[in-house]
Every structure is written in structure tokens, then in C-alpha cells.
Amino acid sequence: MHISDGVLPVSVSLGGYAVSVALAAWSARRTTSVQLPKVAVVTSAFFVASLVHIPLGPTSAHLLLPGLAGALLGPVAFIAIGLGLLLQCLLFQFGGLTALGANALMMGLPAIACGWLFQALKGNTHLRHAVAGAAAGATGTAMAAVFLAGFLAAGGEDFFGVAKIAMAAHVPVIVIEGAISAFTIGFLFRVKPELLETGLVTPKKEIHG
């Protein structure tokens, strides 16, 4: 779930912008600038993936995928997520213009953390990859929920109730996200394991021209 316009105090949304821009610059420095167009194209794939709805009893939930993005892209995931949110703003207007910085932090920081978590946990076997994927997926969503609650609570004690309910609403999504990430990582391990080794966007090195 993304924060919409008009919810956050202006100081929080401006602060969110400042921190996001700094993190995006740091994230961009982790790869060669020639490779950034690749990040853009990969972002569109994640964007399309995040539109998939999973049925959940009478309703359905759409995937957030910060964990998976972190696992596959590494630190560049922050840029990818910021870009994805900007696209969402362009195409659908979920999570509006003024809340963009806060939303990028809410999804991007968990992605970076999950990238590290995934790299630390994944071993050499199929099972360990799947477990690491599950951990990354579930942690990513859980962290995003905590950030969401934190941002909402920044509005004052009037928002504490909303923050609690928003957190509770994320619990089933955390389970689904963990399972989906585990299965997806397992699939990629069997089908195209080199994606999990270095990711698509390689860190700074020479490219053959």
C-alpha cells in the first residue's frame, strides 16, 4: 500500500524527498552510468510483475516485491523502485506527487536491506536459495509495513489507529510475498541461475564494446 497525497505533513514529505534523492545518487554510483538504461528496462519488468494480483479469500492483494527486487538487483534496486513509483504516478496516480519521496524510502530501504540479506543467506543449493528468497520477500514486506506505519504516525497521534490497522493489513501480504519470492527464486535457480549470481546489472567493471 502506498501513501497518497495530502496525508503526510509537508516537512515529512520534503524530508523524504531529500533522503531519497541522496540514496538514489548513492545507488546510481554503484553501477556504471552506461548501465542505467538497463536498470530502467528491468524496472518496467518489476512494475508489470507488481500488478499481478494474488487471490486471498474474498479479496485479492497485489505484490509489492521489494524483497525480490533487492535480491535480483542489489543496491541498484533503490533506483528501480523510485523509478517504478514515478511511473505509477505517471500512469495511475497511486501514491502521489508530494508523497513520492516517502514512498520511495518506504519501499526502497527494505529492498536494499533484503539484497544484503539474500546475498548473505543464499548458499549453493536449491533449498537454501528458496529459503533466502522467502526470508528476503517476507522481511522486505514487513519492513515496508513498518515504514508505512512510521510515516503515518509522523502525522501525530490522530494517525496512530490508522497506522496500527495498516500494519495489521500487511500480515497476510507478508506470508504471500515470502512464498512467492521463495518459489520465484527457486524457479530462477533452476532456469537461469546466473541471474542470481551477479544480477543483471553488474557492479562497476569494463564492458566489451
Binding site: 542505467l36 538504461p37 536498470v39 530502467a40 528496462v41 524496472t43 518496467s44 519488468a45 512494475f47 508489470v48 533506483i79 523509478l83 517504478g84 514515478l86 511511473l87 505517471l90 500512469l91
Partner: peptide, 10 residues
């Protein structure tokens, strides 16, 4: 450029 490219490929 990244916005342009990703909007195209979405």
C-alpha cells in the same frame, strides 16, 4: 532517460 525508457517498456 530512464523514465522514458521504462515508460516505453512497461
Amino acid at each position: 532517460q530512464m523514465v522514458l525508457l521504462s515508460n516505453r517498456y512497461v
